[in-house]
Design a protein around this nucleic acid. Sequence first.
RNA 1: GCAUCCAUAGCCAAGUGGUAAGGCAAGUGACUGCAACUCACUCACCGUCGGUUCAAAUCCGGCUGGAUGCUCCA
Length: 451
Amino acid sequence: MKELRLFNSLGQKMETFVPEIPGEVAVYVCGPTVYNHPHIGNFRPAIVFDLLRRVLLALGYKVTYVSNYTDVDDKIINRAMELGISEKELTESVIKEYRGLIDELGCLQPDITPTPTAYMDKIIAYVKDLVDSGHAYVVGGDVYFRVSSVPHYGELSGNSVDSLLSGARIEVNSKKESPLDFALWKATEVGIRFDSPWGKGRPGWHTECCVMIDSIFKSRDGHIDIHGGGFDLKFPHHENEIAQSYAHNGNGLATYWLHNGFINIDNEKMSKSLGNVLLAKDVIAEYGAMAFRMMVLSAHYRAPLNFTPDTIAEAKKGYERLQAAYRSLGIYLQANGVDDPSSLPSSSLDEFLTPLCEDLNTPNALTVLYAKIKQSNADLRACKGNIEPLKADFAALRDYSKILGLNVKYPCIQNIGKQLYREYFDAKANKDFAKADELRGKLTEMGIWMN
RNA sequence: GCAUCCAUAGCCAAGUGGUAAGGCAAGUGACUGCAACUCACUCACCGUCGGUUCAAAUCCGGCUGGAUGCUCCA
């Protein structure tokens, strides 16, 4: 099996990927809080970790890919009240939209998409365990995690407990033993809330992910191979997940921690306050889902990605070049005796996978793709009826596209199309340009012209 | 203030010790009966100052500029 190297945020260095169970990979990616139409920033992790999943699959691993929808949160409660609907109605409609966008963007749906509301019993039991073992304490109806009860807090984010303490803001909430302690359970008056041994309330965000991982991957002691998410989640979210996992399961939750960079708009942070939040559905409507995916792939996943009309337009062109070359080959092959190009045997993927195996270097993978597109176009121009090189070109474009999650297609030209192409090639060979033009017009009209 | 990361051509973006991938735009040329498509060629001393080294975009330090986080919070 080809070696995959990944940059592990835990330790800040490149490491060779070695799964805990040979041949199998457990992945968890922090999903969105579903309170409003998803914006484009929600889909960078979705695309990046979908790519990781596809690379793992191409390398021959069996992958279990889990990504949650956070459906308990203040933002959800506030938004639901604004709209005058229940939290459940709101989250269900947003999840539905999100799932649709995932499809459009060429991402595979996760194998499992847990939601905290469905795990409430387990969350409460988990928090109770932490209280019982002395890693958490109850104040009023709240439960807080005792950060001082676990070693190495700050390991992931590069913070030390001392520096975090010195940088801590003046706490409004003085109920906590330490400013670093975080809420596992919070007593609430407003919105959706649940019964617990500590009264009515809601779970803390950090705990939700931990419990879902712990439950879904019970057979692995709640320890997964890869945990992914946006850069902003490193601290406190992932740091706190690690602390809880050490306290509850005696392990650090995940071996490899991967964090994707953010999307900026015109070199500015995308934020509500700046009023520059771009909704995924709007961007897709204007430029196409594949243009957006191509744009995400055009930069390394850890680097910031700048969204401007130019950058997405450029990505769109790149995708269209791929699509056009693939389509031309698909049609030409059918017109020349290959009835089902999609079933042509695969060619070697080694050259293409090599950059992807170096910490998902998609820009370099795209370089390989562009070279193949160029070669395909040149081969098609020069083939003179010899379709052998075209078969290999086609298979390569097909397989590369699949790994990148870029949807490409070609029309089935049917027997009538094959007949018209035979006549077209004959007419051209006989320099009967009037007839060739007519046939070209007809093929164009049918939507199956090569170019 | 503390922490993490970044600074490569008009634009996007790889490369992390041995004299700068790729894409967009631009220019030149080729193919073609025509149009479109396509192909070839041209286009960077790597923010700045200093250090280490036979050798640095690549390592170290200063400076300048930028992104993000600092606890349930936008």
